[in-house]
Design a binder for these strands. Structure first.
Lengths: 334, 334
DNA sequence: CTGAAAGCGCTTACAG
DNA sequence: CTGAAAGCGCTTACAG
């Protein structure tokens, strides 16, 4: 591999001059001739700076890591887009990983913990990461911004308005005339899920309906079938259900079809989060669209603030969730 | 941040000794006491080696990058699992990205091109990456292993048996009694798609049926609706269709439902690739399952061979595709 | 067996 | 305006 030194030798200039050309910095005012010669050599040799050396010298890598729980979940598509765009605008590369890779002792975790290759971490773990691992992460100087609500006052986080999402989904069903509405999906350990469930409870109480215990069955498709099983075995069958996550909602839809329960005839379903899948299943899913892209942008802003040492305000992003009415909801039949 | 030097000072030993403890190398035979003291200081301070310095010194980062076209496509789930496991077994971290990020001049691309932070690249681009960018990538010393078939004899690649996949899907329909079978989805630029289409053609010819021109409408959900539109406007309506990609097959299913075409009553659908979505849609999708996990493992083996300079054989992995019969296929009605 | 020194490839304050 | 030198934090051949 050609090094800076080699380019300098070939162009018969100093390393500093080459560095200046590569980075467009101070030395900028060198003779046009010199500059041209250096550029020619760089192009000829195909020189590219060594990132490790740069990172070591500059004390920053120019790369941020995004780690999410269940990378395959389509709800992250928009989030990643927002993160990517905001990061690129700042000149940062982003690399992705799944929280499942953050096992204690894994090389991936080592890269997150060790300085030098990753400047900051954006993390959404839904309460699933080992406490030890999390403590290690916090003990490091690398800034971590959580992409979900936190109760811990010391951590940095940004989140969409999950409470409002749960509330809007529930209110939508209540306003359509449903009285027995349930909440299904998500994880007990997740504050995100807790917030959405709180939203459900708030809406129910406000409508003077009795909120039921949530069935926190997870985030994937199977969480939907499990959720369906839960409401079936609950004694009375509801006419409406709010499902945490679109994938789970799709799973619930499938389970309902398999058990001969008609949607929306016998059961109205609202999914939280919007994704392509909502338009693929039949009936199409009514969903609550969350501003995930904006979340991504805000998360990157947070990182920048942290890296610059600017005091920052944390919290929920202002943009409201939005209900997307499709075909999985209707007034209750009697 | 604590450095190695600082640990050495605190433990009153040389830097080499600390390095030996951290890495478990040569100096290993130091007195148990010394070792214990060093370990104590490391734990106390929470020392973690700087990855940039290590990468620079060792001339390898211990990280490989995986970049795929359309990261949100669920067909990659298994592939990534295979890659992750094989990489971890070798002590490598893996980081992910989307080909959309490989735009000329992007920081992400810079990280892939520049030595030092990424040791090797696993890439699946479906023919979509800019030729210039690809040329740049190839010009670099960083090994690139393509996760798809290549015609270029100089590139390194591993692939599943796409031709066989297209052939099996088609033969399955032919054997069920279909005579007019179409091929839909995928990309013109993609050798993967070409191979699957070739498989379709082979099967059709062998059954003495006339193969039709493929409709290369893409990989996403919309590719399915576009594909459906294509076969509808083709004059005669077929009784069977092979769809490149499960997501597209799901999209086609939805389009068929919207147009009142019954599946499998009027149209049998086979998707190439298996994913959770196949079990969510109704009717459930018959698919051809490809050994994506094995592909991931093989790709990492390739990388290892390349990094070690071992001569390697390239090509299609031996494990056969497998047809998963669900509910979207039936004999043609008359 | 252990420590001092060189050097990985850069960037940048500093001297000329 | 330009170059020589120091140093980022490690690892490893080498001298003691």
């Amino acid at each position: 591999m050609a090094t800076l030194k080699e380019i300098a030798r070939r162009a018969e200039v100093s390393a500093s001059a080459v560095s200046a050309v590569v980075n467009g910095t101070t030395h900028t005012r060198m003779s046009a001739q010199t500059r041209a010669r250096i550029e020619a050599v760089i192009a000829e040799v195909g020189y590219v700076p060594n990132d490790a050396a740069r990172a070591l010298r500059r004390q920053q890598a120019g790369t941020i890591a995004v780690v999410v729980e269940g990378l395959e979940n389509p709800v992250y598509k928009e989030l990643l887009l927002g993160i990517y765009e905001a990061a690129e605008a700042r000149g940062w590369a982003v690399v992705l990983g799944d929280t499942a890779w953050m096992r204690s002792g894994s090389p991936f975790l080592a890269r997150l913990l060790g300085q030098g290759s990753i400047d900051a971490i954006l993390l959404r773990h839904e309460g699933l990461i080992d406490g030890d691992v999390l403590a290690h992460l916090r003990a490091r100087p690398t800034p971590v911004v959580l992409l979900e609500q936190q109760s811990d006052p010391h951590s940095h986080w940004v989140a969409v308005d999950d409470l409002m999402a749960g509330r809007m989904a529930t209110e939508f069903l209540l306003q359509a005339g449903h009285t027995d509405v349930r909440f299904v999906g998500g994880l007990d350990e997740s504050r995100t899920s807790a917030a959405r469930y709180d939203g459900y409870v708030t809406a129910m109480k406000q409508a003077r309906r009795r909120p039921r215990a949530g069935s926190f069955t997870g985030f994937g498709v199977e969480a939907g079938s499990l959720g369906f099983a839960a409401i079936r075995s609950s004694g009375t069958f509801p006419t409406g259900v709010v499902v945490n996550n679109v994938m789970s909602a799709a799973g619930l839809l499938a389970a309902a079809a398999d058990h001969g329960v008609e949607v929306p005839g016998q059961l109205s379903v609202v999914g939280i989060h919007d994704a392509e899948i909502a338009d693929i299943v039949r009936p199409r899913l009514t969903t609550v669209r969350l501003p995930m892209r904006a979340l991504g942008v805000r998360a990157v802003d947070q990182v920048a603030a942290l890296l610059e040492g600017t005091p920052t305000t944390l919290g929920v992003i202002e943009s409201r969730p939005q209900i997307i009415v499709r075909a999985s909801t209707a007034p209750p039949s009697r």
